[in-house]
């Protein structure tokens, strides 16, 4: 019996490349490649290197050896390190609380019908626009022991008789850098909260007004709860940025006097770059990670959408 082979009609074979480009997962990976490269090169690799350095005794100009947690053990006995931890927490907490209060106040104010509103908003943004180092230098002058404008004004006004040692006394210095940080950080909080306020429908306030709410009750029952998701985001960012601050301190006090304003970031830089002990400096940086993770986790759980924000029907 003769078997007649059926002629098989074959589509012309597409090249391997053009077939691969039709493949969703291949194409997806291809598009992600640049982003992955950037993340690995500039984030993952430095982070991993920092971890590793923290476990070595590397110094500038020398190859290091693995020393385990020896750096952390010595830091635990280092009073300067613990002072920097205290300073960092003090700096972060006080500055963040005040930034939130002033930022919220300004946001509510700017959300009202004001004359020259757009100009006022632009002015509020100014501290954010000026490069940090420039504003730090300005503060350095303002706090100068001989040329401080604050001292000068107070003396001319007859309120004090001697120039204030803004940066010479430990607590004065701490408060001085906190004030500089607040000045620098308020615009971010204010403008972000203002954006949040503008998403609240005016008819809610009108309804509350008809329902008999006073100004304070409108703020307490409408503004604050409606704003809470944005408050959580903006304060997380604010805390992270304040905790890792470097520029202001390094420009104004370099950590002085007697380490009174050293933050973990500035101490890390001082030990690693100025002092040459890369391993120890990296260990100080690594010690910041638990605090930052805690802050992020706190906001992560705080940020979980509350019940009223969840969409859908049941």
């Amino acid at each position: 019996m003769a078997v007649i082979a059926e002629p098989v009609v074959q589509a012309p074979r597409a090249s391997l490349l053009s077939r691969a480009l039709e493949n969703r997962s291949f194409l997806g990976s291809l598009f992600m490649l640049p982003a992955i490269l950037i993340l690995v090169l500039f984030l993952a690799y430095p982070l991993a290197l920092g971890f590793w350095l923290g476990l070595t005794d590397t110094s500038i100009g020398g190859t290091g050896h693995y020393v385990g947690i020896a750096n952390f053990v010595s830091l635990a006995k280092d009073s300067v390190f613990w002072l920097s931890v205290f300073n960092t927490i003090f700096y972060t907490v006080t500055a963040s609380v005040v930034k939130f209060a002033i930022g919220l106040y300004l946001a509510v104010l700017l959300n009202e019908r004001l004359p020259f509103k757009s100009i006022l908003r632009a002015i509020v943004l100014l501290p954010f626009v000026v490069p940090t180092v420039l504003s730090a230098i300005a503060f350095w002058w303002i706090y100068d022991s001989q040329f401080s404008i604050i001292s000068w004004v107070l003396i001319k006004a007859g309120l004090i008789h001697n120039y204030i040692e803004f940066l010479g006394d430990p607590w004065n210095a701490r408060w001085s850098v906190v004030v500089a940080n607040i000045w620098r950080g308020v615009p971010f909080v204010a403008i972000t909260l203002l954006a949040g306020l503008q998403t609240i429908s005016p008819s809610l306030y009108e309804a509350a007004n008809l329902d008999g709410a006073t100004n304070w009750q409108r703020f307490r029952y409408i503004t604050l709860p409606m704003l809470s998701p944005i408050i959580a985001v903006v304060m997380t960012f604010s805390v992270l940025m304040t905790f890792t601050d470097f520029q202001l301190i390094y420009t104004i006090t370099r950590g002085g006097p007697i380490n009174a304003t050293h933050l973990m970031a500035t101490l890390s830089f001082q030990r690693a770059i100025t002092g040459g002990h890369l391993g120890e400096g990296a260990a100080i940086s690594n010690a910041m990670i638990p605090f930052l993770v805690a802050a992020i986790l706190l906001s992560f759980f705080g940020l979980q959408r509350t019940r009223w924000q969840q969409g859908g029907r049941d």
Partner: peptide
């Protein structure tokens, strides 16, 4: 004042408080 007028209003977009 609106709150003293003893009136109630239904808004076009309802103006319900989303968090309540």
């Amino acid at each position: 004042q609106p709150k003293e007028r003893d009136i109630a209003m239904v808004f076009q977009n309802y103006a319900l408080y989303p968090h309540m």
